[in-house]
Design a protein around this nucleic acid. Structure first.
Length: 192
DNA sequence: TAAGTGATACGC
DNA sequence: CGTATCACTTAC
């Protein structure tokens, strides 16, 4: 039986959660199919002061889930093409979130899980999963702890696709990867 | 390197 | 209202 992480795991700033979510399992109940992947890349978006975070616009119809309970999904649609999956963090109602950018296939992925748009495609995650409770074992979507003995070597660097956010936030090392994974969305750590 | 795609936030 | 922009992907 595979169980979700407790809500307390998410009830802190995304910058603390993001490194710890690497190696954890993304689980999607899709009818009779259980889709499972190991998270290998994630980014933290840390609040209204973070000029790359959607919450920089304050609470709006789109960003409302970030202001609600930690441990829920924040799913949004971008470029007219892709859904993106985030785990809402905290603490409390502080709007921070972790973007899930890549997952290694473990079971029943429909496609590659490399890249945030491909994660949602592989797990068949859609806008209807916005606000899903990631801590409920009956949920269609949840996040489970690392498997026993799985202690990924981490690499951290600047986030992808946030050039507009100014020098400070563009350079902030809020992207976390399993440095040994071959499924990263783009060259992170120098491989050797 | 560039197009595609549509919701969003913001200016008028 | 109009429209510039976007936490991307894929194919040249």
């Amino acid at each position: 039986m595979i169980e979700p992480l407790p809500r307390a795991f998410f009830d802190r700033n995304a910058a603390e959660v993001a490194p710890e979510v690497i190696g954890c399992l993304l689980v999607r109940r899709d009818g009779d199919t259980l889709r499972v992947g190991r998270i290998v890349e994630a980014e933290a978006y840390v609040g209204e002061h973070d000029r790359a975070c959607h919450a920089r616009a304050g609470r709006t119809a789109r960003t409302a889930p970030m202001y609600e309970r930690p441990g829920h999904a924040y799913v949004y649609f971008i470029y007219g093409v892709h859904e993106m999956l985030n785990a809402v963090c905290g603490p409390g109602g502080h709007p921070s979130a972790v973007l899930i950018r890549a997952a290694e296939p473990i079971a029943n992925l429909a496609h590659s899980g490399t890249g945030p748009g491909n994660v949602t495609k592989a797990f068949r995650i859609e806008m209807r999963h916005n606000r899903s409770d990631l801590c409920d074992p009956r949920s269609e979507l949840f996040i489970a702890p690392r498997r026993p003995g799985d202690q990924p070597r981490l690499w951290q660097g600047p986030r992808v696709g946030v050039q507009y956010s100014g020098p400070r936030w563009m350079k902030a090392r809020l992207r976390f990867c399993d440095r040994d994974s071959p499924h990263l969305s783009r060259p992170g750590p120098a491989r050797r």
